[in-house]
Design a protein around this nucleic acid. Structure first.
Length: 194
DNA sequence: GCTAGGCAGGAACCCCTCCTCCCCT
């Protein structure tokens, strides 16, 4: 993060399943936001070859096929490129504390990839801060609360999810701290390849 | 329309453990 700026990268993973310990990443997308401004030209996106078959359930859920990932880089290369894109920015993902960050951590561990610490914010924290406990904090619930149209993007594709999540984060953040001077919710830490 | 793993947060209770629910693909 540069002095005087709040650089974050909103990101999303698609995977072959829910468990970080036995499933693999198949797509990564990221979008940079600086001081509350979404930099739509500063995007990262790649498919990832999982080294295993994508189940029909996941293809149906995400729209991602085996053909789309078969010539894509593997997780080690894809995560290394993502890490370059991220730089020193703080990562933001929805339910990332339980899903996306463990997926990166465990994927690096399995591949003996050296990692570095990186700041991380779970966007669920913005929702909890704004709307308390009732009603849930799933992405669709939040989009509905913010009157954002989920049909405007391809949901469950990392590129679509990250675009609409970035807008949701921008709106939630601005309702808490319109100046975007610092993160208004507790930030944690995760790891990303060196 | 469909599966399954981990775990935060709350309850009950004074420090842990158990329980339930959430949320991601």
């Amino acid at each position: 993060m540069q002095t005087g700026t709040m650089d974050i990268v909103v990101f999303d993973l698609e995977t072959t399943g829910l468990s970080p310990y036995c499933e693999e990443i198949i797509q990564i997308a990221g979008m940079r936001m600086r001081d509350g401004v979404i930099l739509k030209s500063e995007v990262f996106e790649t498919y990832v070859n999982p080294g295993k078959r994508i189940s029909s359930f996941i293809t149906h859920y995400t729209g991602i096929t085996n053909a789309q990932v078969c010539h894509a880089p593997g997780a080690v290369q894809a995560l290394a490129e993502f890490s370059k894109f991220v730089g020193d920015a703080t990562l933001v993902a929805h339910n990332g504390k339980r899903f996306d960050m463990p997926f990166i951590r465990e994927t690096c561990l399995r591949n003996s990839t050296p990692v570095r610490p990186i700041g991380f914010i779970d966007s669920i924290a913005f929702s909890r801060r704004l709307w308390g406990r009732g009603g849930g904090h799933g992405l669709d619930v939040i989009l509905n609360r913010l009157q954002l149209d989920p049909q405007s993007v391809r949901r469950h594709d990392a590129r679509g999810d990250v675009a609409i999540l970035a807008e949701a984060v921008r709106m939630m953040w601005s309702r808490i701290d319109p100046a975007f001077l610092k993160c208004p919710v507790p930030a944690g830490a995760g790891v990303i390849p060196v």
